[in-house]
């Protein structure tokens, strides 16, 4: 953190149709307390609207919470859209219920970190500080 003069900006998004945002809210609040600027966008956002929000907010990280099982479709699409919009230096991470077997494919698609149940806020914060772009 020492070399950074401004807080890391993180967009917390809930893509898709599941309506459970407690985990996303806990993470948003926890990262705030870790010194991050967290932009919380609420439930049921489309991939396009998450990309537009990430661009307008000039975030360093997009964190998606997915509990619906749609991760295999939504997350690679999100990474591809961010790259197409020139935001290829934005770190994409995901949390929620994501089976172990799906992880290699998601990592291949550019999802940098996958955090399952039981991950602590401190672990997420440490990962983001180590991997978010420098500026």
């Amino acid at each position: 953190m020492a070399e950074r003069t401004t807080p890391i900006r993180v967009l917390i998004a809930k893509p898709g149709l599941d309506g459970h945002d407690r985990g996303a809210k806990v993470l948003a609040r926890g990262l705030r307390d870790e010194g991050f600027e967290v932009i919380y966008t609420g439930l049921r956002r489309t991939v396009d609207s998450i990309v537009a929000a990430a661009i307008e907010e000039d975030v360093d990280v997009v964190g998606c919470s997915i509990l619906s099982g749609a991760h295999a479709t939504l997350l690679p699409k999100l990474v591809a859209s961010l790259r197409a919009s020139g935001a290829s230096d934005v770190l994409v991470v995901a949390g929620g219920i994501i089976p172990e077997a799906d992880r290699p494919e998601l990592e291949q698609a550019g999802i940098s970190g996958i955090f399952g149940p039981g991950t602590t806020i401190a672990e997420v914060a440490t990962f983001l500080r180590a991997n978010a772009r420098r500026r």
């Binding site: 990262l31 705030r32 307390d33 870790e34 010194g35 600027e37 919380y40 966008t41 929000a53």
Partner: peptide, 16 residues
Amino acid sequence: SGGALLGDRVRIDEHP
């Protein structure tokens, strides 16, 4: 902490 929770987009529709 120097952090912030910026939640206004929840109430603003996105128009990508």
